[in-house]
Design a protein around this nucleic acid. Sequence first.
DNA 1: AAAGATCGCAACCGCCACGGA
DNA 2: TTCCGTGGCGGTTGCGATCTT
Length: 255
Amino acid sequence: MSCRGVMGAHMGMSWGMLGDGGWRKGPWTAEEDRLLIEYVKLHGEGRWNSVARLAGLRRNGKSCRLRWVNYLRPDLKRGQITPHEESIILELHARWGNRWSTIARSLPGRTDNEIKNYWRTHFKKKDKASPNNLEKSKTRLLRKQQFQQQQQQQQQQQQQFTAMDMKKIMSILLEDSDSNKVTNNTTTSTSLVQQARQAEMGANIYPTYTEEQGNNWGCYSDNTISCEASNVDLLCWDAALWNLDDFQGNNWGSF
DNA sequence: AAAGATCGCAACCGCCACGGA
DNA sequence: TTCCGTGGCGGTTGCGATCTT
């Protein structure tokens, strides 16, 4: 029997049922999500194997961790991978190969699973794809992007970051970058910081933040962060963001 | 309109590294 | 030093949604 056959038989048997040790498997219900979120609120991330006992979930620790990391974390960015993110993925994959978690660290709000899925769907198959198929997927992608753009525009109208919120972010980011926590490319990061400063001085336009978009840095207008930035610039910018992230304990909602 | 093909994503598995007993 | 529990990672699968014929 093929590997797929073995796995398929196994997963088919267990999907949505109780596995070894009585753990539930398969898709998560809204109630399970709620319990897990409550658990993390009370106890923080980690100690996943106590979730079953403390939260009343019939899920094993691994499953809980995965659900939290890939789906429930509040700082997750939803929606389409942007062209900038795509270029970062391409560049980092060329450098590191299938080290998805490493790549994910350079893309705030994206999970290794998401990037891995994106890569497999959009790039791996291109190797085999005929020009015709390629055209089809492009069209499909375009349609999806247009639909999501419409949705995002609607949401932007409802949930705009206030200027004050953004000033807080910028001041934290600037303090952080000034203390040289970004070590890989000080020159570039400094220049980004300068640009950011200029942006703050100009200050009439702030990036928007929506629940759906998460940290959609692509929303910066041309007079804030240069849209012409190279991938290296973007990486530095991302690195700066991650330092900010560390500073805030990954809690975007706490600004 | 319907059937088959393809896509996208959530979730699973096995393996490995690490830290504590 | 060894064993065991835990968490993280990368590969793989199942299935609903969407598209094509």
